[in-house]
Amino acid sequence: MQGVVKVNSALNMRSGPGSNYGVIGTLRNNDKVEIIKEVDGAYEIRFNGKVGYASKSYITIVN
């Protein structure tokens, strides 16, 4: 499943599905991501070869 990031500035990509996990990357508006699955209000995603988590509130599914 594919998604597009929709933010005003940037969205943190984290090592786990919550803000208490470390930041492993930054997503920008209109970045395209692969959605692997939904976990606790976040999506597990793949972006630029990395797998991490981002809030589903800022990712629009575009299948």
Score class of each variant (00 low, 15 high):
K32D: 04
N12R: 13
S19N: 13
V23T: 08
R14W: 15
P17S: 05
S9M: 11
N12L: 15
V33R: 00
N48G: 10
K32P: 07
Y58I: 05
K50W: 06
I45Q: 00
V33H: 01
I35G: 00
R14Q: 06
N12F: 13
G41H: 08
N12H: 15
V51T: 12
R28Q: 12
E38H: 03
S9L: 10
I36E: 02
Y21K: 05
N29T: 07
M13I: 15
Y53W: 14
S19E: 15
V23Y: 05
N20Y: 10
L27A: 02
K37Y: 05
F47Y: 09
S55P: 15
R28E: 08
P17V: 07
E34A: 08
R28C: 14
L27D: 00
G22I: 14
A42Q: 15
K56T: 09
S19H: 13
R46P: 01
K32C: 14
Y53S: 01
M1D: 05
V7D: 03
V51I: 13
Y58P: 01
I24P: 02
V51S: 08
L11G: 04
N12M: 13
K6V: 11
Y43T: 00
A42M: 15
T60Q: 14
I61K: 06
V62D: 09
T60R: 13
Q2D: 07
M13L: 13
S9K: 14
T26D: 03
E34R: 06
G16Q: 05
A42C: 15
M1G: 07
E38M: 07
G16T: 06
E38A: 08
L11P: 02
Y53I: 02
V23R: 05
K6G: 05
G49C: 07
G41F: 08
G25S: 09
S55I: 09
I24G: 01
G25D: 12
G18S: 10
E34Q: 10
I36S: 03
I35E: 00
L11H: 05
K56I: 09
M13H: 02
D40M: 10
E44R: 08
G16L: 04
K50S: 07
G3K: 01
I36Y: 05
V39D: 04
I59R: 00
N29G: 07
N20S: 12
V51Q: 09
K6Q: 10
Y21S: 14
G52V: 03
S55A: 12
S9R: 14
N12K: 14
I61N: 03
M13C: 06
V33A: 01
E34H: 10
G16K: 06
E44Y: 14
T26H: 09
S55W: 11
G41C: 11
L11R: 07
S55Y: 07
T26Y: 10
S55C: 14
N48Y: 06
N29E: 06
Q2G: 06
D31Y: 05
G16M: 04
V7Q: 03
K50G: 05
E34T: 12
K32I: 15
R46S: 10
S15N: 09
I59K: 00
N30I: 02
N48W: 06
V4I: 14
F47K: 03
S19K: 14
K50I: 14
N8G: 12
K37Q: 11
V62T: 11
I24W: 02
D31Q: 07
A42R: 09
A42E: 14
Q2H: 12
Y53P: 00
N12I: 15
G3H: 02
A10H: 15
I35L: 03
N12W: 10
Y53T: 01
L11D: 02
N20R: 11
Q2K: 11
G22T: 14
E34N: 06
N63C: 14
E34L: 12
L27I: 05
G25M: 11
L27T: 01
V5Y: 01
S19W: 12
K32H: 11
Y58T: 05
E34G: 04
K50Y: 07
S9C: 15
A54H: 01
Y21W: 10
I24Y: 01
T26N: 06
T26R: 11
E44T: 02
M1P: 07
V4C: 11
K50E: 09
K32F: 12
I61W: 04
S9I: 12
G18E: 06
R46I: 13
R46A: 08
I59A: 00
N30E: 08
I61Q: 05
E44L: 15
R28F: 12
D31S: 06
G52S: 02
I61P: 09
Y21D: 14
I59H: 01
Y43K: 00
R14F: 14
I24S: 04
Y53R: 01
R46D: 04
K50L: 14
G52T: 02
Y58Q: 07
Y53E: 01
R28M: 12
T26V: 14
N8K: 15
G18C: 08
T60A: 11
N48R: 11
I61G: 03
R28Y: 14
G41V: 04
I61Y: 05
K56W: 03
R14H: 14
K56D: 02
S55G: 10
R14P: 02
N63E: 13
M13A: 04
T60C: 15
L27P: 01
G16W: 03
Y58E: 09
Y43R: 00
N12C: 15
G25Q: 10
E38S: 07
I61S: 04
R28I: 09
G52E: 01
K56H: 03
G18W: 03
K37F: 05
R14N: 06
K50V: 13
